[in-house]
Design a protein around this nucleic acid. Structure first.
Lengths: 340, 340
DNA sequence: TATATTTACTTAACCGATTAAGTTATTTCC
DNA sequence: GGAAATAACTTAATCGGTTAAGTAAATATA
């Protein structure tokens, strides 16, 4: 039960705790022979330093927080993989906080970080986040360096790792238009998120470049409840002037679209074409296979963590105005082009 | 930068730090009027206790660890959701450790827990784990209560939350046999994991009950590398006496099977039928839709966390010999029955 | 009225490590 | 040979809380 402490090592070797501590940290104040003895004993007694004693004294926890809406989403789970790969290499621990798209939770979580629990924060905003005081407060108080990934906060000027959302929205829409779509609906989960608005801008630009007027009726905002999203989508696809193309900006909405199409006997891609932002590895196996905008999720996580650790390794490193934009890829499959 | 501490509150109110601490913890030693004053000031100054000071003194971190092979897997990501939902309610923090199926990592991670970083551990073994000293050591030293979920360790007698793996293996195999399969291959990732052997036992029992001899050649062990798994599966499906039924015990292998079938022009379910352990929400949208054994992933995570917190809340609570078995469900779809 | 108890605190030790500021003994240098 | 520098430690303060033990005043009890 009781773990080996520095005090026990000190008693055993007739040294002060200070000497042990310094020996373990390879201080020049300690002779090589003593260091040897300390190291040997520490190994033999299986000494593991108390995680919190050092954190308290040094005001450093070797822990980062990842704040994100959801894990059960291939983009975020891959991003976590990327983050974890860097954190592990650096010997850091990773705390996970799920907001489940709740702004209140996001606020509570950030507030808790004032406890000094984490040295750095990686964050992707909730779909609800429309006010940024909690983020400003965090930054103003200089609590911990913050790096946004994917769902970044334009109102903050800390580091942001993102994909080319405008271009992605543009590419996807252009592709749908070129496949013959005249009425393209955009499924979104937020009118606050900058990724949403950028994707939407890309969409609008593509329409404009192809002389299709933008009609706000084609903007469809879904919520957090899977069932009502399904019913909503189904209702829209059931209408007389239903869309003939769908751009789903969120992976989870695609399932609903497929199900609704199936139930309404709408043929994909003949009656309706679909492009979805998705990292689903089974995208190519769907019926029909799904045309996706696929983000480099793992790389985004990795890049975000890498930038964060630059700041943690060197206090002078400035996160401000850092923007990394990684390209997404349009992968054309059967939901837009038959026979693919 | 410098956070509000108890010392600052004490100075402000002309009280000792002890009084503040006790007031904040609503001790009977402090008068109501003083408590009021302390609480009011703490609120006003936005006092957030240092996360590590209390943890050090009280030897309690309000943090649990989740040790698992992978997040980019719908079972595990849903389980994390379940765990997080309980942890959040209890005011605990969740550290995530990914083993990526590496035994060495699992050992290192467990060893680190001797630092007292976490109050409790939720764990799912790696596919490689065949030795259990690291787990015994953890338990012997009484470092933190440990609850296994899904990939449990039979050699330990701490709490285990699992699904009915034998029955699932049985049901899946029986279904394949009833669909006409004569030669059913089992895709597995481990011959160590108890879930694997239980599923396999169920498979064998089903064969026996239907008078089909068990042939070890139908046992196919895949590794951790996606590409070589694919090539391996493809090779097997290319052979003359290829299987006519596949039971994939791991979600990620299913994609490979579908791809291999497509490349080899094997028709599912006509030429080959597939059942997979999977929590993929898109299972019904695959081409053909996938017959699955679906585990109650969220509930498993939730149950595991609930049991762990029982032990954390009441030290006398015995985790030993606790076994909760939640039922999985066979969902018949198009990969075994055409037209589904 | 004297003693016991309760109330509402304060003091000081403590959790386990880190580190600034000493303290010797030894070596270096002029 | 004596001052200065260096090596190899120790002492004690510190991080920010928690808590056992102590204390003084107020109240209760005999």
């Amino acid at each position: 039960m009781d773990n080996v402490t520095i005090k026990m090592l000190a008693k055993e070797l007739n040294l002060s705790t200070a000497a042990i501590s310094k020996a373990l940290r390879d201080s020049h104040e300690i002779s090589d022979s003593t260091k040897q003895r300390v190291l040997e004993l520490a190994n033999r007694m299986n000494y593991i330093p108390n995680a919190y004693a050092g954190s308290l004294r040094r005001r450093k926890s070797n822990t980062i927080a990842v704040v994100l809406p959801e894990v059960a989403d291939s983009f975020f789970s891959l991003a976590i993989n990327g983050i974890e790969s860097v954190a592990r290499e650096k010997g850091y621990h990773v705390l996970i906080y799920l907001t489940h798209e709740s702004f209140k939770r996001e606020q509570d979580i950030l507030k808790e970080f004032q406890s000094g629990r984490v040295d750095g924060i990686l964050m992707s905003l909730t779909a609800e986040t429309a006010s940024y005081q909690h983020i400003c407060a965090l930054e103003a108080k200089n609590i911990a360096p913050l790096v946004f990934f994917d769902r970044v906060c334009d109102e903050s000027n800390t580091a942001k790792i993102m994909t080319d959302d405008f271009e992605s929205g543009y590419k996807a829409t252009k592709h749908l238009i070129e496949c013959g779509c005249k009425k393209i609906a955009v499924l979104s989960i937020s009118n606050y998120l900058s990724i949403s608005s950028k994707r939407l801008e890309g969409y609008k630009q593509a329409l404009q470049d192809h002389s299709i007027p933008f009609d706000p009726i084609n903007l469809i905002y879904c919520g957090n409840d899977a069932d009502s999203n399904y019913r909503f989508i189904r209702k829209i696809l059931h209408e007389k002037d239903r869309p003939d193309g769908i751009l789903a900006t969120v992976e989870k909405l695609t399932t609903k679209v497929y199900l609704a199409c199936r139930e309404l006997s709408l043929r994909i891609p003949d009656d309706i074409k679909i492009v979805s932002f998705s990292n689903l590895s089974a995208a190519s196996l769907l019926n029909p296979s799904l045309t996706t905008i696929t983000q480099p999720a793992f790389e985004i996580g990795k890049a975000a963590a890498t930038v964060l650790f630059k700041s943690l390794d060197k206090k002078s490193f400035q996160l401000e105005n850092i923007r990394e934009v990684l390209p997404s890829e349009l992968i054309v499959r059967g939901s837009t082009v038959s026979g693919q």
